[in-house]
Design a protein around this nucleic acid. Structure first.
Length: 404
RNA sequence: GGGUCGAUGCCCGAGGGGUUAAAGGGGGCGGACUGUAAAUCCGCUGGCUUACGCCUACGUUGGUUCAAAUCCAACUCGGCCCA
């Protein structure tokens, strides 16, 4: 392709699934020629409380646009979250309450702030689509719906699959692409970003902009990041994710285990490390990946510490960097305290019965020493203070006495 | 509106009056192994810190039975077909 400005090249070349119309060259040209900052739209529905690395791919892309001088329009889909985007779901989403949406929106902004430039004036426009969607009249909704046919809707993969599989497809779900497209009209987006699963919705935006006499937006899709299981899309519900707010040790521990066949992809989508410079040794690659990403979200020093903690954890079974282990206050327990009870209260196990099973399975250690007796109990916090309670190889609690 | 089939644990899915906390698979967790992981093998996979005990569970409600996920009725929700 062309010899583009490095900022533009970064935008159109790395971490891109598809750009349309016209591909990377067309967008690059548009970016190079513009005499004003372009309006780059990214919509996120606050349907869950936490963002993960999968979301960060598109957020990073949006950040690149900011760095090149354009306006990031971060659209919180507080209204569309109530509709439920059927995209990528094999079934209709549960409807959320407005309170849940509001709560999620707040945490999203905190997390997005780790990646986007919230500070430089003029680089960020924060909007909520309830601003205009909540007030649509039935007449306007009907007009919107008149822009698309059933056949066009059924061209959307998810709808077609579900329809053929005999799973229910509700009519309100048809509204979703139209509403998302209408957002582009209102925001006068020049470019809209999204995952590849957003293709249909992004295109709907172009159709509706044309209908309203606007120049249609460019659409840039980013690949969907596979999760830690190595195959399925990263998602919280599949528990194959790395959360943006996770503590450094957890983040590091997860990332140093990314399956070999995905390591390069993670580098490509989640870092700026030149792919040609990756180490040969697969283990070194994983380590570099984990350190690079933890550094991005925290700092180089923290990443180093996490690495040391993770290493000593493997070698000796106990993290030396005790500062990176979550603490658990013994003051909130009632004594005598069964170990299974402590395990549950501390969040290491989901129930006392589960804790008992973990003990029987040989997974539980106290200060590195394996506990065999599921009935073991402690008479006071003194027996436990300062010790490290461990389940399996990954989960730790440092027992402390402070009351809080 | 009518007909018909269906609703089971995180998911899929067996079971069709008692021995069913409910087969099997997936997923998850743990153990062994390894460069972490993957693959493989093994174990666990409702809850209760008081446990040869109690509680909750097969769409909902009610009924028949000594006894129901299993039978009956109504209802709710879905698929398909007819209008």
């Amino acid at each position: 392709m062309g010899n583009w400005d490095p900022l533009i090249a970064a935008i159109v070349e790395r971490g891109v699934a598809e750009i349309f119309p016209g591909g990377a060259a067309a967008l690059a040209e548009r970016l190079a020629r513009t005499d004003r900052p372009l309006r780059i739209k990214l919509g996120i529905d606050p349907t869950r409380p936490d963002l993960h690395l999968g979301h960060s791919v598109v957020l990073r892309k949006l950040r690149q646009f900011q760095d090149a001088g354009h306006v990031a329009i971060l659209l919180i889909g507080d209204f569309t979250a109530l509709v439920g985007d059927p995209t990528g779901q094999s079934e209709a989403r549960p409807r959320l309450t407005p309170a849940e949406v509001e709560e999620n929106a707040r945490t999203y902004l905190d997390q997005a702030g780790q990646i986007l430039d919230f500070d430089t004036p003029g680089r960020l426009e924060l909007r909520r689509n309830s601003e205009w969607l909540a007030g649509l009249t039935l007449t306007e909704i009907i007009e919107l719906q008149a822009q698309m046919t059933l056949g066009q809707m059924l061209a959307k993969e998810d709808f077609a699959q579900r329809y053929q599989a005999g799973t229910p497809v509700y009519l309100h779900e048809f509204l979703y692409p139209l509403l998302q497209g209408y957002d582009s009209v209102v925001l006068q987006a020049d470019v809209e970003l999204g995952g590849t699963d957003q293709r249909f919705n992004l295109l709907t935006g172009r159709d509706l902009q044309l209908w309203k006499g606007q120049p249609p937006q460019f659409c840039l899709t980013v690949p969907l990041l596979e999760g830690l299981d190595g195959y399925q899309k990263m998602s919280k519900s599949k528990n194959n994710y790395v959360g943006l707010t996770e503590d450094p040790l957890t983040m590091y521990s997860k990332l140093e285990k990314v399956p070999d066949h995905l390591v390069e992809r993670y580098f490509e989508l989640l870092t700026q490390v030149p792919l040609a410079e990756l180490p040969e040794n697969p283990r070194e690659r994983q380590v570099l990946l984990a350190k690079t990403i933890v550094t991005q979200f925290h700092s180089a020093a923290v990443a180093e510490a996490a690495q040391r903690a993770a290493q000593s954890l493997v070698l000796q079974g106990i993290p030396q960097e005790t500062g990176s282990i979550p603490e658990f206050s013994l003051a909130q327990l009632q004594y005598p305290a069964k170990l299974s009870y402590i395990l549950r209260e501390s969040g290491l196990c989901k129930s006392a019965a589960d804790a008992r099973r973990q003990i029987q399975g040989g997974a539980v250690r106290l200060d590195g020493q394996k506990i065999e007796d599921p009935e073991i109990e402690f008479l006071s916090s003194e027996q436990l203070e300062g010790k490290i309670l461990q389940v399996g190889k990954k989960f730790f609690r440092r027992l402390v006495r402070m009351a809080d």
